[in-house]
């Protein structure tokens, strides 16, 4: 018999491995998860890549762009600062992927409960009897 603590940690383990990537291979998925976590810290805990991969498998986003970008990253990692420097005028596949992955990761993280709570401090989506509006005086 498992005791309660063992049961809970087994649950957490299962939850972590319960997703088999649909659009990317397992290796690509792992590398993408690493890349996305550098872009948006907290993304891994919020299972952002699961969200993105599911979408890619159903025609949301460009699978080929992800495969090419992740492939480049797996072949030769470059410092994120370097990629970010060329964000507005990307010249290489990996620089282009930086933009693609960042947009998708920001959206998926903002939509996750973790992102809403830990990043944005959001406490909405609840039943209010009155909306307070701005309650402070500003200059």
């Amino acid at each position: 018999m498992l005791d309660r603590r063992e049961f809970v940690s087994l649950g957490a383990l299962l939850a972590a491995v319960d997703y088999v990537p649909r659009a990317l291979t397992a290796a690509e998925f792992g590398a993408a998860e690493e890349f996305v976590e550098l872009l948006v810290p907290g993304a891994k805990g919020a299972r952002v890549m699961r969200y993105i991969d599911l979408g890619l498998a159903h025609g949301v986003g460009d699978v080929e762009a992800w495969k090419r970008g992740v492939g480049e990253w797996m072949n030769g990692k470059r410092p994120m600062g370097e990629l970010a420097a060329n964000e507005l005028s990307p010249g290489t596949e990996l620089e282009r992927f930086f933009g693609v992955a960042k947009r998708a990761a920001i959206e998926a993280y903002a939509l996750s409960e973790e992102g809403q709570r830990d990043w944005l401090g959001y406490r909405g989506g609840v039943h209010l009897t009155a909306f307070p509006g701005c309650t402070e005086e500003h200059g």
Binding site: L39, V40, L83, A84, R103, L111, L120, G124
Partner: peptide, 15 residues
């Protein structure tokens, strides 16, 4: 701040 439809979706850099 509307997480479900953020008004501004991009800022430079990462992390």
């Amino acid at each position: 701040v509307h997480p479900k439809k953020m008004a501004i979706k991009w800022a430079p850099g990462f992390g």
